[in-house]
Design a protein around this nucleic acid. Sequence first.
RNA 1: GGGGGGGUGCCCGAGUGGCCAAAGGGAACAGGCUGUAAACCUGUCGGCAUCGCCUUCGGAGGUUCGAAUCCUCCCCCCCCCA
Length: 425
Amino acid sequence: MGERGSAVLSAREQLDILREGVVEIIKEEELEAKLERSVREGRPLKIKQGFDPSAPDLHLGHAIGLRKLRQFQDLGHTVIVIIGDYTGMIGDPTDRSETRPKLTHDEVQANARTYTKQLHKILDPLKTEVVMNGDWFSKMSFAEVMDLAGRYTVARILERDDFTNRFQNQQPISIHELFYPLMQGYDSVAIKADVELGATEQKFNCLVGRELQKAYGVEQQVVMLLPVLEGTDGVRRMSKSIGNYIGIDESPKEMYGKTMSIPDTMIIRYFELATVVGSEEVAAVRRELEGSEANPRDTKRKLARAIVSLYHGPEAAVSAEQEFDRIFAKGGLPDEIPEPHVVLKGRPDERGGVWIVALLTGAGLTKSNGDARRLIKQGGIKLDGSPVTNVDSEVPLDEPHLLQVGKRRFAKILPERVTYDGRED
RNA sequence: GGGGGGGUGCCCGAGUGGCCAAAGGGAACAGGCUGUAAACCUGUCGGCAUCGCCUUCGGAGGUUCGAAUCCUCCCCCCCCCA
């Protein structure tokens, strides 16, 4: 373990650090005992956290847990990240809305690499092991599966809220979905986890892990539950599939902009969960917001800078802010404007002009011609900086033009990147 | 195996022969305002060179001048009984 084997903190001191920001520890005495033994025997604890293999975009919600894992690492412990390639074949029953396409082995491998890359933005690569639960599940015989299934009861599985709700709402539950908690729990058996980290909504699954470890004669893990961060809508939990997430791998300006779009009521919450500012500073922010002097916008700017700095550094945060001001406060242009390849049906008119509506759609700025018409009528389209009011406008393609939809969508139309699909009439 | 209920646009959800491209809500997008891509207000929200036409209401057929709405078969989901 120790490339820094020297100053190991006492169990008590470690516990004090680890407890911070945690919603619940089951059970704290056990964690303390494990830490004590770890210190005494100079043996790191194994900290487990699992991830779904299908959605490799980690976001600020995941980061809460990752920072906690990082704390464990900094205290000398080992983190084992489990990519649930087998559990992913089921999909967590929590959000079983889409039927997930089965991932191929190669796709899972690719996703695992993407994960690892993102994980290393927060975790210490030297103390992080990434494994897939297919490593053990693919080798299990049917008899072993039956044995696993025999160690838990239907009634206990149905205690889980999601199942109960779905049952009551007359939504389908497939039998293999009942295996999800068992499989996640068995992961803990397989790696002999000392601690499993999860968001509060994972409580049930993590506790199944404890039960199964007991059933299999493995020392029980401690369950450490962390808060769930709301997404940019301020209501539902941050999630890729809902689309209300801020990814830790996103560009500074996306991060900055998305942060600015959270409801004002979420500012404190984000300071607490999405940044690393201390509790006194959060308290100061709270006072600032409650007092009437400060403009919440400025507090939110501070938040956005803090978040961007965390992942991209302070300079990037400053330039993201400048760009944001330029575009939104002053209605200016971004640094980089896409120059799409435009394919048009038919051909230009004699003067080399192209119908504005077709151009917008061809450039991918609007979904359809109808969409483009509507936006023009609503005054949402600008050509070279001035609003387009006439749906029938022709744009001469003798020189580059700047097209803008709303405040956020831009495209530079270069004549040499416009082609015609040659369709006659 | 028996009985009952249900599958509608991105999501939820009304609609049981023409007034339905389909109410309402949410999401999203645009405009206004502002303190920001907050909040609030207004508008838009299947496609088409634009008020008429085309393609949508699980799938395939059929009845009808006309079907999301009726009939037949099929697929899927839920509940109750066994």
